[in-house]
């Protein structure tokens, strides 16, 4: 158990099918694993009709627990690969965590040790 507030959680809302890209870039920058949830987006229908654009409502949310030191690096990297300007149309933000359970510090660099 940890309550030293050295971890943060990244939420990343991307179009369906772009989670692989998000996880790849996150792992390259020091994250270990993530969890994916399916979700449905809601947009402004009137503006969509006006411009004749279809924004696909199928979304996926990726949750990644990271150490605070890596936060900026990971957020910027994900924005470049799957951010709003790319096809992934990702919205990325991080929240502070006050308590964590189930993360083993010793195997920080050993990526085989931790999934989920």
């Amino acid at each position: 158990m940890d309550n030293t507030q050295q971890y943060e959680i990244i939420f990343c809302i991307v179009n369906y099918g772009f989670t692989d890209i998000v996880m790849e870039t996150a792992k390259q920058n020091g994250a270990r694993g993530g969890t994916i949830i399916n979700a449905r987006g809601t947009g402004n229908e009137e503006t969509e009709k006006f411009y004749g654009i279809v924004i696909s409502p199928d979304k996926e949310i990726v949750m990644i627990i990271i150490e605070k030191e890596n936060k900026d690096k990971i957020l910027h990297a994900i924005y470049e690969t799957a951010g709003l300007e790319n096809l992934g149309q990702g919205i990325i933000f991080s929240l502070p965590i006050s308590h964590v359970l189930g993360i083993n510090k010793e195997n920080k660099l050993n990526t085989e040790s931790k999934g989920s």
Partner: peptide, 19 residues
Amino acid sequence: YEEIQNLLKIEGKGVSLTI
């Protein structure tokens, strides 16, 4: 968390966090 701690380990890889 003190009670869950062992159960999380037994039931495979599990994580819990609070915001």
